[in-house]
């Protein structure tokens, strides 16, 4: 094995070189399929979308015209797309903070309990597991204006003191309770509610995982240092320790919120809700690009969407690396 045994020096070199070549060849063969698929399935489509967003291409047409920035111009001038951005951002801005807050709250409560922790955890996690489309349909029945459980429950409050202190109840009892999904005042909030319902359990589980990483002695140290209230201990120990978790939870909640589609398509297969109040971006891409075969405008929405999502993820990475890294 060793040089002292009389193996010529060159032979050793040759052997290592050939070994390196072999290893390199193996490496490329092993990564090859993944590389090709990454390029074809993930990168090429972005390129295609960015090109098509400058055309008026339609599937089935033999040719197309370059239309410059006209698609983007439409996107930022037409009221339909204004509604799209409003709906999307309303949804994201509602769902993200509330589902993160509820997730944190539930995690803190559950973590402080001695018993039944697993029970709560399991139940809160159920919506994450369940097929969202099926649950959307269940919610649709719950929200049914006449036979839905929600309005039936509200009706039970009629004739009680609730009617006097809450004008919403009074109006409902006098006339009728809201047609939740058919009313443009409520539609986006109902969708947001379902988004929160579905997502907060996921955040809770991430926070619970984060909480197990908080060193118990830190709480004792905080107590010794004079942090008397639960709030002070939370500020001094828990919240900073959950920093990385929070960054991650917020980002992933944002990305998921941007992608909301199932509930909206299930409730309003056409047109994106009453007065387009729930016309979110994923639905717009589906409607314009796939249903109406307006590939150009669909691609433009895709590009804007990608920009949003990538921007968010980059912010997250930056935050994780810079700020919350100890």
């Amino acid at each position: 094995m060793s040089l002292a045994d009389g193996v010529p020096h060159e032979a050793v070199v040759e052997k290592t070189v050939s070994h390196n070549v072999k290893e390199r060849r193996a490496a490329w063969i092993l990564t090859g399929p993944a590389l090709i698929l990454m390029v074809v399935i993930l990168l090429a489509p972005i390129l295609v979308a960015s090109l098509l967003s400058f055309t008026n291409y339609s599937l089935g047409n033999s040719g197309f015209d370059w239309v410059g920035f006209r698609n983007y111009e439409k996107l930022f001038t037409r009221s339909t797309y204004a509604k799209m951005f409003v709906a999307t951002l309303t949804y994201v801005v509602t769902v993200v903070p509330i589902s993160v807050g509820l997730g944190l709250g539930a995690a803190l409560l559950i973590n402080s309990l001695g018993r039944f922790r697993e029970v709560y955890k399991t139940i809160y996690f159920l919506p994450v597991m369940a097929t969202l489309l099926a649950m959307a349909i269940a919610w649709e029945f719950m929200l049914h204006p006449s036979i839905g459980m929600i309005n039936r429950t509200l009706e039970m409050g009629c004739g009680t003191f609730l009617e006097r202190i809450w004008s919403f109840m009074a109006n409902g009892c006098a006339g009728h309770f809201p047609v939740w999904l058919g009313d443009k005042r409520y539609a986006i909030w109902v969708i947001s509610f379902i988004g929160i319902w579905q997502g907060f359990g996921f955040n809770m589980v991430l926070y619970l995982a984060g909480l197990t990483g908080v060193h118990r002695e830190l709480y004792h140290a905080a107590e010794m240092d004079g942090a008397r209230s639960a709030w002070e201990r939370f500020r001094l120990v828990t919240w900073p320790a959950l920093g990385p978790t929070t960054v991650f939870v917020v980002t992933i909640s944002c990305i998921r919120a941007f992608q909301v589609f199932d509930t909206i398509e299930a409730f309003w297969p056409q047109g994106g809700g009453p007065n387009k109040s729930t016309y979110v971006m994923m639905f717009a891409i589906f409607e314009k690009g796939v249903q109406q075969n307006l590939i150009g405008i669909g691609s433009a929405i895709t590009m804007v969407f990608l920009a949003f999502v990538m921007f968010l993820t980059l912010i997250q990475r930056w935050l994780v690396e810079r700020k919350v890294h100890y």
Partner: peptide, 22 residues
């Protein structure tokens, strides 16, 4: 490249993928 591709949600590029498949 892998790290970059992690940024791309497949749902977001559904439209160009659909065109390719079509």
């Amino acid at each position: 490249l892998v790290l970059f591709c992690l940024l791309i949600p497949v749902h977001a590029i559904a439209l160009p993928l659909y065109i390719l498949l079509a």
